[in-house]
Simulated assay, not measured.
Amino acid sequence: MTRVATVCLLLLCVLAAPFAAAPAQAQADRCPKLVARSPFLAPRAPLTLPAAYPGAREVSLTYVGHSTFLIETAGGVSVVTDYNDYVRPATVPRVATMNRAHSTHYSLNPDPGIEHVLKGWREDREAARYDLEVGDLWIGNLPTNIRDWEGGTIRNGNSIFIFRAADLCIAHLGHLHHTLTQEDLGALGRIDVVLAPVDGSYTLDVDGMVEVLKALEAPVVIPMHYFNRGTLERFLQRFASSKYVIERSASPTLVLSRETLPLTPTVMVLPGN
């Protein structure tokens, strides 16, 4: 009986193994889990700013201003974040993402040449969901809540958009108003580059944003949405006590690759606000 019981137990373990592995595999299939690594696992070269247009394993990121970035892949796909009528790049992108907070984060009249206009919210307050591939770019999102002008809550009024290209995951936090839960962090996984609003008032307060960034553990943080230099410096002073180093670029454009992610987690300040 003992031998039979042992055989049965082994058979049960073998049959159960695929089901036990399924959740881990499902997580691994998500963009960040699949392509990103912890910034503390292996040494990396210092962050560089190559002058050449990105190669097959590189992505170009340009800070246009406020919370708007132009992301360009080696395959020629372009996306503009928080596309609006006030701050726009000269080029018409193939993809535009928007958030609901106010009119500097969305447009009611986007350029008709844009192939994909992705709103980070739905009018019925249900969660907007995206799983979109455009050439060599993949786009997903995590819905979050925002405050209204009376202090109430607009459910799913913001989206953290995630862009994957060249084995890099770039997260744009949008108009984030609250810290992230463990469930949120699990859905996002590991992020290589995070574009973070650091105004400390209209979005999340400085301590809350620092908490979010430390939880994400991205090798590169790029501040945005800070209105003036004083606001930016207040965030940088608060963040200076963390394990991140602070670098400032004279160029609004950063060319990124997995090979050039920094050895030490870095806040990269690009010109503009």
Rank of each mutant, 00 (worst) to 15 (best):
residue 106 Y to E: 10
residue 210 V to N: 03
residue 209 M to T: 13
residue 213 L to S: 10
residue 139 I to R: 00
residue 206 V to M: 13
residue 66 H to T: 07
residue 186 G to W: 00
residue 36 A to I: 01
residue 214 K to H: 09
residue 14 V to G: 01
residue 91 T to G: 00
residue 41 L to K: 06
residue 35 V to Y: 15
residue 27 Q to Y: 06
residue 201 S to A: 15
residue 72 E to L: 03
residue 211 E to I: 00
residue 82 D to P: 01
residue 229 R to D: 14
residue 117 V to P: 05
residue 86 Y to N: 14
residue 235 F to K: 09
residue 159 S to I: 02
residue 243 K to A: 09
residue 129 R to T: 12
residue 263 L to S: 07
residue 209 M to S: 11
residue 182 Q to I: 07
residue 26 A to P: 02
residue 218 A to R: 08
residue 66 H to M: 07
residue 63 Y to T: 07
residue 193 V to P: 08
residue 162 I to D: 00
residue 24 A to L: 13
residue 152 G to A: 10
residue 158 N to R: 05
residue 4 V to M: 12
residue 237 Q to H: 08
residue 129 R to L: 08
residue 77 V to R: 02
residue 35 V to R: 05
residue 51 A to N: 06
residue 125 R to K: 14
residue 105 H to M: 14
residue 239 F to T: 09
residue 180 L to K: 07
residue 211 E to H: 02
residue 52 A to T: 09
residue 42 A to L: 12
residue 44 R to Y: 06
residue 218 A to K: 05
residue 60 S to V: 06
residue 64 V to C: 01
residue 270 L to Y: 04
residue 61 L to T: 00
residue 37 R to M: 04
residue 90 A to I: 09
residue 205 D to N: 15
residue 242 S to P: 04
residue 20 A to T: 08
residue 102 H to T: 02
residue 66 H to L: 09
residue 201 S to R: 14
residue 127 A to R: 12
residue 252 P to L: 06
residue 136 D to G: 11
residue 122 R to C: 08
residue 3 R to D: 13
residue 221 V to C: 14
residue 260 T to A: 10
residue 90 A to M: 05
residue 261 L to F: 02
residue 99 N to I: 04
residue 173 L to Q: 01
residue 245 V to G: 03
residue 190 R to I: 00
residue 228 N to D: 15
residue 2 T to F: 11
residue 160 I to P: 04
residue 204 L to N: 10
residue 180 L to S: 02
residue 256 L to R: 12
residue 58 E to V: 05
residue 18 P to M: 13
residue 26 A to V: 13
residue 113 G to C: 11
residue 268 M to A: 15
residue 28 A to Y: 00
residue 214 K to V: 08
residue 51 A to Y: 00
residue 193 V to Y: 03
residue 57 R to K: 14
residue 269 V to W: 10
residue 230 G to T: 12
residue 213 L to I: 12
residue 86 Y to E: 15
residue 108 L to V: 12
residue 89 P to G: 12
residue 159 S to R: 05
residue 95 V to D: 00
residue 149 W to Q: 14
residue 225 H to W: 03
residue 157 G to V: 11
residue 223 P to R: 02
residue 191 I to W: 00
residue 263 L to P: 05
residue 229 R to M: 11
residue 14 V to I: 15
residue 45 A to M: 08
residue 203 T to N: 15
residue 251 S to K: 04
residue 170 I to V: 15
residue 24 A to T: 11
residue 149 W to P: 09
residue 21 A to C: 13
residue 122 R to I: 03
residue 121 W to C: 10
residue 221 V to W: 10
residue 221 V to A: 10
residue 12 L to N: 02
residue 95 V to E: 00
residue 138 W to L: 00
residue 135 G to V: 05
residue 32 P to C: 05
residue 83 Y to I: 06
residue 239 F to M: 15
residue 135 G to K: 03
residue 129 R to S: 14
residue 147 R to Q: 10
residue 83 Y to A: 13
residue 137 L to W: 01
residue 144 T to H: 14
residue 116 H to L: 15
residue 22 A to S: 08
residue 218 A to E: 03
residue 249 S to K: 03
residue 260 T to M: 04
residue 53 Y to G: 02
residue 12 L to K: 01
residue 29 D to V: 04
residue 92 V to K: 09
residue 69 F to P: 13
residue 68 T to F: 03
residue 10 L to P: 02
residue 40 F to L: 09
residue 155 R to H: 07
residue 76 G to H: 06
residue 182 Q to L: 11
residue 235 F to R: 06
residue 194 V to M: 02
residue 176 L to M: 03
residue 7 V to L: 15
residue 230 G to F: 07
residue 59 V to T: 11
residue 47 L to N: 00
residue 114 I to L: 07
residue 8 C to V: 11
residue 257 S to N: 03
